[in-house]
């Protein structure tokens, strides 16, 4: 079943040279699956996620022909309704997790607050759930970490705290923007398992934005490749190496290897790609 439908999404910012479109007519549908988005830095991945969540702030503007979540059109929903949805049914792990946490509230209290908003648990049960959630994302000393403020945790711990917070809410749609970029492979595996569990067991839909080509290729059901505000290619699970678009081929060529002996890495021929597609905001 389709959970999210996006048709002709555009995000625009004003500039001295007139409006600049950073997302240029994106259309896709998401079911109860793991959809990966990869793409060039600045190609509009984060803005796509934020637009779905209704989080494009002025002077930016998002428009679409249709943007439906569980059959409800999000475009004209009052902010009050949007906020309700955002807290519960759909949630987003932002790219800079430590800066989306409240800097003056202890980590444990922030997760407990999220729980309080969504469930009727006693204070004690909430506390137990908070520690459980932290342990699940492989924080070994949850008691200590629950008492820390966001600036006192490491980069990767901040990402895991954000994921723990989203997971306790059990949303129907999760947009995760680079949720594992600071994690080593062993912790990353565990975090992916948790998200996988929500997709399989609870039928959640996951939009995973990531630069990690190998991870996305191995783990997602489908992959969208973005370049300059547009989807340039869609690939099936494990079919990354069959990519045709010159941008995607260029990406694959740039990947360093474990036994790297090249003096320089191949880079994209951007001028040639520009001839291939114009516009956007890189």
């Amino acid at each position: 079943m389709t959970l999210l439908e996006v048709d002709n999404l555009r995000v625009t910012f004003p500039s001295d040279q007139g409006p600049v479109e950073v997302v240029r007519g994106l259309s896709f549908a998401l079911g109860r699956e793991r959809l990966g988005i990869v793409g060039e830095s600045g190609s509009g991945k984060s803005m796509t996620g934020r637009a779905i969540m209704g989080l494009i702030g002025a002077p930016g503007q998002a428009t679409a022909d249709r943007m439906a979540f569980e059959g409800r059109d999000l475009r004209h929903l009052p902010e009050r309704e949007m906020r309700k949805l955002r807290g519960a049914r759909m949630s987003m792990v932002l790219q800079d997790p430590k800066f989306s946490l409240n800097p003056v509230i202890r980590i444990g209290d922030q997760i407990a607050e999220a729980l309080e908003f969504h469930t009727r648990l006693s204070a004690r049960a909430r506390r137990a759930r908070v520690l459980e959630a932290l342990e699940a994302v492989r924080i070994d000393d949850p008691e200590r970490v629950a008492r820390l403020y966001p600036h006192e945790v490491s980069g990767g711990m901040g990402q895991r705290v954000m994921i723990a917070m989203m997971v306790v809410m059990e949303p129907a749609l999760m947009i995760a923007d680079e949720p594992t970029s600071a994690l080593d492979v062993s912790v990353r595996g565990q975090v992916l398992d948790i998200m996988d569990d929500l997709v399989r067991r609870r039928g959640m839909g996951l939009l995973l934005i990531s630069h990690d080509l190998n991870m996305v290729a191995r783990w997602c059901d489908r992959i969208l490749v973005m370049y300059r505000g547009q989807i340039v290619e869609e690939l099936g699970a494990g079919a990354l190496h069959e990519a045709q678009h010159p941008y995607t081929r260029g990406l694959l060529a740039s990947l360093p290897r474990l036994n790297e002996d090249r003096a320089t890495l191949p880079v994209l021929d951007r001028a040639a790609l520009d001839g291939f597609m114009a516009g956007g905001d890189r």
């Binding site: 990869v38 060039e40 630069h211 941008y247 740039s254 360093p256 890495l265 880079v267």
Partner: peptide, 10 residues
């Protein structure tokens, strides 16, 4: 960590 592999290579 926040760069796509082509920009990372550069």
């Amino acid at each position: 960590s926040a760069l796509d592999v082509s920009v990372q290579a550069e």
